[in-house]
């Protein structure tokens, strides 16, 4: 077992720069203890992918990432035969093949002899391992991040089931490959599409929301140590107010951090409507959003 207690999860994650809420720590601890995949849901930018990165870092494991998208298939996710390499090898060993076939009396016998050598061509030498195969065949345990699983097609989801429940994959030419070590799997989803029940059953579920203001303050403090704490207070409550507006894209934690960073660079130590209006581009990524925030600047600040 990697972790002994929930507190240990929190401490170790914090050491690598990820402040986990109690809920996150509990679920991570349970998933690690029972070797189950974690299905993480939450709004964009709430730190889902970051959780996997932090886990890999604190467990000192390699992180293998599979980014999902529409049209992702087995060849991109699991393995592919390297045809070009196979062809090159056949060209190079042509002589050897001639030797092999020398003395064969009939075509049937020649085919038989070639067939005996089949294994040489469909061996691991010619297989191009993609993230999923890499993760289960790695000699050291890894963290496997399957990012934005909701973007992949439903067929791909079905294909993942074998991997997630038995931690094995079947390659027709080679047989079933079992995992050397069971990787810690983190799947993330943006709720773009509902996941199938079968997939949900194999995972344990975690919902990460935007952090509570206190937590967000701690995160800003951790990432930008020399920021004035009064500014952090103002900043975080302003961001929380902005999130309550009806925006196309709500600012996430990384945007809070970017904003704090840019205020530091500009050597501004207090928020005013003018400051908000000037530095808006950091937190709003749509013009319509920026207009809305600018109009509500007074309100955002006064309720702090």
């Amino acid at each position: 077992m990697e972790f002994q207690s929930i507190e240990e999860v929190m401490n170790r994650l914090e050491k690598v720069g990820y402040i986990a809420s109690k809920q996150i720590a509990t679920v991570v601890f349970l998933a690690a203890a029972t070797k189950k995949p974690i299905l993480v849901e939450g709004p964009a930018g709430s730190g889902k992918t970051e959780l996997a990165r932090a886990l890999a870092k604190c467990l000192k494991r390699k992180k293998i990432r599979l980014q999902c998208y529409e049209g992702l298939d087995e060849a991109k996710a699991l393995y592919e035969w390297e045809y070009a390499k196979q062809l090159l090898y056949t060209q190079m060993i042509k002589e050897k093949i001639n030797d092999l076939l020398a003395g064969a009396t009939s075509i049937a016998e020649a085919v038989e002899r070639i067939a005996d050598q089949e294994d040489a061509f469909f061996s691991e030498r010619f297989i191009l391992a993609r993230p999923l195969l890499q993760a289960i065949s790695s000699d050291n345990p890894v963290v496997l991040l399957i990012d934005e699983i909701d973007k992949a097609d439903p067929e791909f989801e079905a294909f993942l089931l074998e991997l997630l429940s038995d931690f094995q994959v079947s390659i027709p030419e080679l047989g079933v490959k079992k995992a050397v070590h069971i990787p810690l799997v983190v799947l993330t989803s943006n709720n773009y599409r509902d996941m199938s029940d079968a997939l949900k059953r194999r995972c344990i579920h975690l919902y990460i929301d935007y952090p509570k203001p206190e937590l967000e303050k701690r995160i800003v403090g951790l990432k930008i140590p020399d920021i004035d704490s009064r500014l952090v207070d103002r900043l975080v409550s302003a961001v929380n107010n902005i999130r309550n507006l009806d925006l196309k894209k709500r600012p996430c934690i990384s945007e809070t951090l970017d904003w704090a960073q840019s205020l530091m660079v500009l050597q501004i130590d207090d928020l005013t409507p003018q400051v908000i209006s000037d530095t808006l581009n950091v937190i709003c990524k749509y013009k319509a959003d920026a207009d809305l925030v600018r109009a509500a600047a007074e309100k955002i600040l006064c309720s702090t």
Binding site: T26, V27, L30, I204, H205
Partner: peptide, 16 residues
């Protein structure tokens, strides 16, 4: 809290 998080992680497998 832990008890509840545990049950929730297993019983409610989506935000919905």
């Amino acid at each position: 809290n832990r008890f509840k998080y545990l049950l929730r992680a297993n019983f409610a497998k989506s935000r919905r």
